[in-house]
Amino acid sequence: MFTQVLQRLCRSIDFVVMLAGYFASFLMPFLAAIVAYEVFSRYFLNHPTIWAFDLSLFLFGYIAALGGAYAQQKKAHINVDILYLKVSPHTRRVFNLFSYSLAIFFLVLVVKLGFEKYEEAIEFDYRTQSEWAPPMFHFWIMMCVASVLFIAQFSRDMVAEIYHLVTGNPLIAPENDDNDEY
């Protein structure tokens, strides 16, 4: 019963994080298209846009931040694994509990400071420095959402590691997916 609750929780987090990861990746073609359009508009139409610079940077930020949790789900984040690969799976789980706590500590700070920055952005109507001057507040909401998803993914992974350490069995049987393809 308890196991099932945990499993359901983990699967729900996995699903939401995956959605965010897919959303971020769907923005990629738009990012390339906007930059290419700016080149086209400037060189061939002789009419540089005022919006492509900021819009491409916003999309870049969205892709980079929102994909973080999904990259953790796919265990794609880089670590120095010289010792890590040599220890037993059991020890590795203990190591992970430490690493994930450190990561969550930082991400909680990102959420806290990001939210303060969002409130400031609303209060003073912060915008970018360009002529187009789009508002900044949404960027900070996104940053908070991205970090909360990231925290959720790390917490879910910690729950799974603790479960495995305590019971000796994996919480969710590992799927046979090719690590190279996301």
């Binding site: 003073f124 912060y126 915008r127 420095q129 360009s130 001057a133 900044m136």
Partner: peptide, 8 residues
């Protein structure tokens, strides 16, 4: 100040 046109 130009760097902070959108802030102030």
């Amino acid at each position: 100040q130009s760097m902070h046109a959108g802030e102030l």
